[in-house]
Nucleic acid binder design. Sequence first.
DNA 1: CTGATAGTTGAAGTCAACTTCAAGTCAAGG
DNA 2: CCTTGACTTGAAGTTGACTTCAACTATCAG
Lengths: 154, 154
Amino acid sequence: MLTTDLLTVGEVAHRSGFAPSALRFYERQGLVHATRTSGGQRRYERNVLRRLAFIRAARNVGLTLDEVAAALDTLPDKRTPTKEDWSRLSRTWRQRLTDEIAALTRLRDGLESCIGCGCLSLRSCAFSNPQDHFAQTGPGAALLPERLRQPTGR
Amino acid sequence: MLTTDLLTVGEVAHRSGFAPSALRFYERQGLVHATRTSGGQRRYERNVLRRLAFIRAARNVGLTLDEVAAALDTLPDKRTPTKEDWSRLSRTWRQRLTDEIAALTRLRDGLESCIGCGCLSLRSCAFSNPQDHFAQTGPGAALLPERLRQPTGR
DNA sequence: CTGATAGTTGAAGTCAACTTCAAGTCAAGG
DNA sequence: CCTTGACTTGAAGTTGACTTCAACTATCAG
């Protein structure tokens, strides 16, 4: 055990639930910061835990790491998020979740009305519609927000 | 234009909205089938369009290709999905969507109750909780179904 | 001082679902 | 027959968020 108030990567990993490799990765991405011992090992200040908590929360809500980085960058002095920061940012997350819920609900209800029809028409069925490819109007357009779509490999 | 009722990969691509490369990929994965000309080019039967519509619908709902393949394999004779197949399978998709909506709703409502608290405690806050790592009981457990989680790179 | 445990690095690997590429071959209208 | 556009292949690349590896090095309890 260290007697200082600095934490090793292992300690931070254990307390935050992130793997040490993830912590190193986040450091390379500029999401968290660590000082070094004379021997080159990482030492973290205690507030990194709060920052990591923020990161995990954002990831749980569905933000990408780039978005998390952008959010953290909006904080003056690159400070660790305060209660007010959290409050402000989480409000925009709420909207995002609300939009995603709405999209999934539309999808499910469309599916509901489609069960039993069995059409699966490439031209008119909302479910088999390649997004907007055919549907000039009507359902099928933008069925899901970006992050709920399966990755396309692009 | 061909005078037969067989479709070229370009025609199928255009009518289905899938890229030719995706059609070839699906063939390698055993999701669709094509015969060949003497010169080695693909020729598709018309019912491949329905099969592709099914695939797109499933993807829109969030199934992985493996799941789509599994679903198609439940059909006797590896037939193209009929109205009844579609009806039966889409019913299970509905449940899946319902579960995902419920999960997102729980997440949002938790966020709601968390705005203003600003705790972000690694031990008790549902949002910063590494899934189940700390929470023996209470909130934070299994915040999101698998497919709504950001990929972890595993 | 020593040995166990924990830490270091850069490079490469993983996963899904494709896309892109290079280097050629086929099909069909004129 | 010829040209043009569509098609063929296997291999490698893409994206995001990491993990894994090999080969060392540091820290610290005893």
